[in-house]
Design a protein around this nucleic acid. Structure first.
Length: 419
RNA sequence: GGAGGGGUGGCAGAGUGGUCGAAUGCACCGGUCUUGAAAACCGGAGUCCGGCAACCCCGGACCGCGGGUUCGAAUCCCGCCCCCUCCGCCA
C-alpha cells in the first residue's frame, strides 16, 4: 500500500515512479486522487454534523436528568442524524472505491532498480564445465528423485525425494538455520495455511492469485513462501524501536500452482508445485532497509559460495518486480547440466509497502509510531539447491561429491551413481 | 463434531441505553518531599482521521471486527473473528 499522503503531496513523483513499471499503473493514480478529493470534501461536513449531534445529545441527556422537556432537542437530533446518515452513506461509497484503487497500486521502485532490463552486477566463482558430458540432476539422482511415482500420486510437478537425498535436505536446512542464527535470525516454523488477509497484506493478492492454491471450503490459502506468514507475525502491532531490527528464519513447505508455466522446466524438481525453503525475513526502521537489503544479499552470496556454486548477482528490472518489491536481487547459480545460470535465491526490499498493508509500526524512543520496513530473502530453496549440488558435484562416473560444510550436519559426503 | 462461557486502555478490572474515551488498581513518565533512593502526595500519559505552519490547539472516530435498532449504543439485536471450559474424535 502506498502512502496516500505522499500521493496527495507529490502526485507527479508517484506517477513518474510508477510509470517505470510500465502498463497503465501510473494512470490509476488519477482515480485515487479524484476519490481522495471527494472523500476529503465529505469528511469535514460529516464531522461538523457529528459535532452538532454530540451537542444535542448532551442537551437531551441534561434535560432528561433534570426532568425538563427534551422534545425540541430530539427533533433537532433526528433531523441532523438523518443528514449525517445520508452523507455517511455517500462517504462509504467513495471509500469502497478508493480502498481497492489504492491497494491495487504497486510499490514505488527504488531509484537504483534496474531499467529497462535486468543488470548483471557480478559473476562470482569458476563455472564447473566438466571435460566429460555433464548430466542433469535427474540423471544423477535416478530414483532418489522419483518423478514418475510422484506424478502417479499427485500429478505432474510432484516428486518423491528418497533415501540419502532426504538427509541431504535436512543437512541443508539445519546448516542454513545455524548460519542464520549466527546472523541474528530467530528460527521459525510458521503455519502454511493462511487467511486471505495475510496474502493481501504481503501484496500477493490482488496480484498473483493464479499462482495460489486455495481451500475454498475453509477460506484458507496455501502459502507460496513463508514470507507470507513471517511478514504477518507482527500484523497490527506497534513494535518497540529498541527491538529492531527483528530477523526471522522461517522453514516451511511452499506451494505454487505454476499456472502459465506449462512446458517450462518440466524435467525434474527445478520447478515443482511443492518444495521446502528456508526464508529470511527482516523488520527494520526505514533508514536501515537499504543496508539490510545488502546484508541479506551478502548472506545469500555467502551461502552459495560455501556450497561451492559459481553464481551471478542480478539487479531485477522494474517491470519484473512483484507488487510489493521496490528492488530485488536474484542470485543465479551455474547449472552444468543446463549449461546456464538459473535463479536459486533472491532478496527483496519491500520498504513500507507490506508494513502499511499489515499495519505494522514501531515506536522510536519516546516518539510517535512510524511505519516500518520489511525485507525478505531466500536462504535455501531446498529443491533447487539439491539440483545445483548434484550437477555441480558430479563426477565422470556419475557419482556426486557433496560439500564438506554439509557433512557435519548429516549429509553424505558422496552420492553413488544412479543405478 | 456437540454444549457452554468470554473478548473494555500496557496489564488487571468496573461499567448492561444518556454529560463514558471510559471508574479503580498495578506498571510507566514528570514533579514535590529526601543527601540520594524508597514510601507518600500531586500531575501526566492511547491510536487514527480532518483543520492548522505546528509534536500547542480545535473537531471527529475508536470498548474484538462488521452491520442493525434508537434522538442517543461499551451497554440491546444479527453476522463474523478470536480465546477459554466440558464431551466426542485424533497425529
Amino acid at each position: 500500500m502506498l502512502d496516500l499522503r505522499l500521493i496527495r503531496k507529490d502526485p507527479d513523483a508517484v506517477r513518474a515512479a510508477l510509470a517505470r513499471r510500465g502498463g497503465d499503473v501510473a494512470d490509476r493514480v488519477e482515480t485515487v486522487l479524484a476519490l481522495d478529493e471527494r472523500r476529503r470534501a465529505l469528511l469535514p461536513e460529516i464531522e461538523g454534523l457529528r459535532a452538532q449531534q454530540n451537542d444535542a445529545n448532551q442537551a437531551i441527556a441534561r434535560a432528561k436528568k433534570e426532568g425538563g422537556d427534551a422534545d425540541a432537542a430530539i427533533a433537532t437530533m433526528r433531523e441532523v442524524a438523518g443528514r449525517a446518515k445520508k452523507l455517511t452513506e455517500e462517504l462509504q461509497g467513495v471509500e469502497a472505491e478508493l480502498e481497492p484503487a489504492l491497494a491495487s497500486l504497486p510499490n514505488l521502485p527504488d531509484p537504483t532498480a534496474a531499467e529497462p532490463e535486468d543488470v548483471v552486477l557480478r559473476e562470482v566463482g569458476e563455472r564447473f564445465e566438466p571435460s566429460f558430458e555433464a548430466k542433469d540432476h535427474l540423471e544423477l539422482a535416478g530414483e532418489r528423485i522419483d518423478m514418475e511415482r510422484g506424478a502417479r500420486l499427485s500429478g505432474a510437478r510432484f516428486a518423491y525425494l528418497r533415501g540419502e537425498l532426504v538427509f541431504l535436505e535436512f543437512a541443508l536446512v539445519r546448516w542454513a538455520l545455524e548460519k542464520l542464527r549466527g546472523h541474528g535470525f530467530e528460527p521459525v516454523i510458521p503455519p502454511v495455511l493462511v487467511r486471505e488477509q495475510a496474502l493481501f497484506g504481503t501484496g500477493f493478492l490482488p496480484d498473483t492469485e493464479q499462482q495460489i492454491y486455495t481451500l475454498p471450503d475453509d477460506d484458507l490459502y496455501l502459502v507460496g513462501t513463508s514470507e507470507v506468514a513471517l511478514a504477518s507475525m507482527h500484523a497490527g502491532e506497534i513494535l518497540d524501536g529498541e527491538t529492531l531490527p527483528r530477523r526471522y528464519a522461517g522453514f516451511s513447505p511452499c506451494f505454487r500452482r505454476e499456472a502459465g508455466a506449462a512446458g517450462r522446466d518440466t524435467r525434474g524438481i527445478f520447478r515443482v508445485h511443492q518444495f521446502d525453503k528456508v526464508e529470511m525475513f527482516a523488520f527494520v526502521d526505514p533508514d536501515s532497509s537499504q543496508a539490510e537489503h545488502e546484508r541479506l544479499l551478502s548472506i545469500e552470496e555467502e551461502i552459495l559460495s560455501e556450497l561451492g556454486f559459481a553464481y551471478r548477482v542480478v539487479n531485477i528490472a522494474v517491470n519484473d518486480l512483484g507488487a510489493s518489491a521496490a528492488k530485488k536481487y536474484d542470485l543465479e547459480a551455474w547449472l552444468p547440466g543446463q549449461g546456464r545460470y538459473r535463479e536459486l535465491t533472491s532478496c527483496s526490499n519491500t520498504t513500507d509497502y507490506q508494513a502499511r498493508r499489515l499495519e505494522m509500526r514501531y515506536r522510536p524512543d519516546g516518539g510517535k509510531p512510524v511505519t516500518l520496513h520489511t525485507l525478505n530473502g531466500t536462504a535455501v530453496a531446498v529443491g533447487r539447491t539439491i539440483v545445483a549440488l548434484l550437477e555441480t558435484g558430479q563426477q565422470e562416473d556419475g557419482s556426486v561429491v557433496l560439500p564438506d560444510v554439509l557433512t557435519g550436519f548429516g549429509a553424505p559426503a558422496r552420492l553413488e551413481p544412479a543405478s
